[in-house]
Simulated scan of single mutants.
Amino acid sequence: MNVLVKDSKVSSENHVDISYTVLAGSALIGWYAPSHPYYKEYHLLGGRNPVVVPASAPGKYNRVTLEGLESEETYHIDLYGVMHNEDRVHLGEQSFRTRSAKIGYFISNSTRNSFKLFWGDIDGHYENVIVQIEDRAPEEYPNFRSKVVDSFIPGQTVKFRLRYASSDKWNEYEFKTARGQPTAPGYLGKFEHTINSVLLHWGPGTVDGGPVLYKVRRDELVLEETEDTAFRDLTPEQGRTYVYSVCTVDDQYNESERTTLTLSFDDLTPPTEISNLRTTDLSLQVLWDPAYDSSGRVKYHVYLEGDHKGTTEETAFSFTELESGKRYQICVEAEDASGNKSNQVCASYPPLGIPLKAQAVTV
């Protein structure tokens, strides 16, 4: 039926109040029929399609559902009364905005083959929800409910979707079921242990489905993630003791307990020579920059005119009982924890080129 008929002048006595209840994809429109029963029908415009409603008795409440609406859209509707001569009287208007089609969810009670799915929103939207799990038949439930979803395998990615009954917009989600804890490698051993490398090997661990991965650590540093059961570390430092560990990892990054092995590496390389050896002019204190050794533990031997005067882990040393007007040779060498020694680095006091009489030496 063509509803685009000519309009007539609106009078206040013909005005009606239009009520509405909105959902995500529809709206329920209602009004009371005017007291003058000379309309043959009502036309409701502004939705997706015009709606024609047969005339009702005066005072009767009319209800019309506008379907196929877009979510989160604002609509303006007009209600007309059509008389028998086809004149159309504007009876009222109303604006509303449809609700969001988004549906939140959370998961609880997850096991290796099931989980509990909760859904709903937070703005008081009590519309029924359609739930579909994988390719199973969709089911309709009230909002703010839950459902136990089962019959899966460990580590399976389960796809599910939700939509409101009034909307055709699905909310697509997925969830991966849990796996059991991986088991640790049966042992951790070594081959070809040298001063600066080691070949580690271990017994296989197991995972609850999916590929097996191993994570190799030196102390807490991750060296490698590998599918093999062996790994060669080429970067240990001499004179150090490390705790190596290997754990089994599944495709959800669950780790087993660690299987460990403590290894020490011999130190055959002396520390570097000290640098920037110098003396203070008046305090008779020797200062130098630290030497480097991979073991991280260095001590220093200090010599005066070839005689050993002391050992320190600091980078400074003070002398006493020096004679005024005499030049001294001071030498320092570094030694690591394995007994390897660097070359001596020497300096003169007073420095060469400075006359001895220019130095005020306090003994």
Rank of each mutant, 00 (worst) to 15 (best):
R258L: 09
R136D: 03
G104W: 14
P182W: 00
P236Q: 01
K357P: 01
H201Y: 04
H15P: 06
L66M: 02
R99Y: 15
E139C: 12
N128H: 09
V198S: 00
G210N: 07
G209E: 01
V52L: 11
V3I: 12
D250E: 02
N143Q: 12
I354K: 12
D281I: 13
R136E: 00
V332S: 12
V148K: 03
G310I: 10
D250Y: 15
V64Y: 14
N343F: 09
H193A: 07
I330F: 04
N113Q: 05
A184Q: 11
Q329E: 11
S56G: 13
E67M: 03
T235C: 00
S35H: 10
H84W: 13
N2A: 09
S167E: 13
I103P: 15
F317I: 11
E321V: 15
H90T: 05
S11H: 08
D208N: 02
F160W: 10
P54Q: 10
A57Q: 14
K299I: 02
Q359V: 02
L213M: 13
E13G: 11
Q252H: 06
G120C: 13
H36G: 02
A57M: 07
T272P: 05
N143V: 01
E225S: 04
E13I: 03
E220C: 07
G81C: 07
P50M: 11
L263H: 05
G209S: 02
K299N: 13
A360K: 07
D219N: 08
F160G: 14
V207A: 00
E70L: 06
D87P: 01
Q252C: 01
L322D: 14
Q156L: 02
V332C: 02
V53Q: 05
P54L: 05
N49I: 01
E273V: 14
G68S: 07
D208W: 00
N49F: 04
V22K: 09
V52A: 13
Y328G: 04
G296I: 09
S35I: 12
D78A: 04
T111I: 01
K6H: 06
K169W: 13
V131F: 10
S19T: 08
H301N: 10
F118E: 05
V216P: 00
T111F: 06
G189K: 03
N14P: 04
V198A: 04
L268F: 15
A337F: 00
S56N: 10
N49D: 14
A334T: 03
Q329K: 10
S151G: 08
E192P: 07
P154V: 09
D87Y: 09
